[in-house]
Nucleic acid binder design. Structure first.
Lengths: 270, 270
DNA sequence: GGGGTTGTGAAAATCCGGTTACCGGCGCCG
DNA sequence: CGGCGCCGGTAACCGGATTTTCACAACCCC
């Protein structure tokens, strides 16, 4: 469990040279990538950095900017760990910061090792939710095997050649196997931030995934659409009895789950 | 603010009377359930309590018990938020605690409101876990199970394939289980704005819902009409036996099941 | 029995997701 | 260093699912 955190990406917004220097050294020692920002940056940029945690000294920004910034960060990057590390503060400020989305608040001067530990603690919490099952045994369902440790999925022992995004999407879905996940939630889990209105990325990637999956495992349906809501991962064998005859749409009422609401794709392979 | 936190269950392991008293008051004020434990308890018990967070004063335990305890808690309840709240401590102790699984470490004396905020911050992340029955505990009545977290309703374990609106309508009705809701109110809750005069959408959707529900659960009446007023959600087993036995177990006879004329009116309301 | 309500069935209007094409960025290789 | 191919992301079009609107039958209560 010690190695759990792995390599992290951290952004630090501060100007305190001494602090930056000593913290930077620790960050290097831990092998975490980090970047120092002298001041406020557009949240979009933070998004692009794909960081795991942000260490912020509130005093580098005027209060009327700092709070909204904190709020915006929390809104766009609900999964980002935010550690406030500031000189002096009142209880009211700390409470406000924590309520606004900060995960921790440390008073300077503080020992860099403690900051490190707090970053770890915050990230650990965050990691637990989405994936972090790099360690978890590979998930096997249907003809599919999802190997979190390899960023790959295999069908009958053969790699499905998923790209990174495709794999993460599949993993996010399979993590919630059986239950419907809304698009926004999927996006948040895979992309890491809030989905913009009108973004169709999820749909497009779902399609790419389906293609690769169906191509290699024609008689299974893995991803089900829930109109107006999202998707559900739930491997089901397509009626195998009608192995080839594509026309055969057996209205087998009882047994099979022929739900009219979900747009099941036909094994319309070649 | 984010209404997210909702009601929480907290356990506090401490002996500092003054602190307990003042913190308890805050916890009450926030409407969070809490329980004070005078000392160490088996982790199993903590598990059984189904708490969201644990506030722990390390000094109530001898060090050689405290650390292993912390470790065990982290191991057994990876999702539990752990806030250490202790008198004095060294950096090394804090680092150790945080690495061992604590999510936060606050020094006493501390303002109870800050502790509250920190609990919130810690739990906030953890709450993001999906797939479980998080958001709103699934409501189960009759043969019906409504899962607010998934936009899905199940009848006897089988999805009712409700569309988004249908589901929202069902949820709105079931939220007020037992009481009559006027059309306008239903419309406002589901559609989100004022119903135009002459709009029949609610009626039409009520019908769709009834069809789907009755089709899958023929011996239950879920939605009742109140002439001139609105509708009421109140699952009642239909007494197929025609006799009086109230709890009469409907003998789901094959023949009667296919009877499409299930157009029964609610008997009499209270 | 009459006037206002609700239940039904279906057409019309919308909305939404599937699908395809295309664009810009990045890493690889010649 | 330029070209090529892969990958992620965006825009647009299309067909089908869903929602809304209608018209009328069935009903309820006075």
């Amino acid at each position: 469990m010690s190695s759990s955190t792995g390599t992290l990406r951290i952004a630090v917004i501060d100007r305190d040279g001494a602090f930056l220097k000593v913290l930077g050294k620790r960050l290097d020692a831990a092998g975490w990538q980090h970047r120092v920002l002298g001041g406020i940056v557009p949240v979009d940029e933070l998004v692009a950095m794909k960081i795991n945690a942000l260490v912020l000294d509130m005093s580098v920004l005027p209060p009327e900017e700092a709070w909204p910034f904190l709020e915006r960060v929390g809104g766009m990057l609900p999964g980002l760990g935010v550690i406030i590390c500031t000189d002096e503060s009142t209880v009211a400020q700390r409470v406000r910061g924590l309520r606004l989305g900060a995960d921790d608040w440390v008073a300077k001067p503080c020992h860099p090792e403690e900051v490190m530990a707090r970053i770890e603690a915050v990230v650990r919490r965050r990691r637990r939710r989405a994936s972090g099952e790099a360690e978890r045994g590979p998930l096997v369902v249907g003809e599919l095997e999802i190997r979190g440790d390899q960023y790959q999925a295999f069908v009958a022992g053969r790699s499905a050649d998923l790209t990174r995004r495709e794999f993460e999407l599949l993993q996010a879905l399979s993590d919630a196997q059986g239950s419907v996940i809304e698009r926004g939630e999927i996006y948040r889990r895979v992309w890491g931030y809030e989905m913009a209105h009108g973004d169709r990325s999820v749909d497009v990637f779902i399609r790419k995934l389906r293609i690769k999956l169906e191509q290699r495992s024609p008689n299974w349906a893995y991803i089900h659409t829930h109109f107006g809501i999202g998707y559900r991962f739930d491997p089901e064998p397509l009626d195998a009895t009608a192995a080839d005859p594509p026309a055969g749409q057996p209205p087998a009422a009882a047994g099979s789950a022929s739900d009219p609401a979900t747009t099941e794709l036909e094994p319309a392979d070649a």
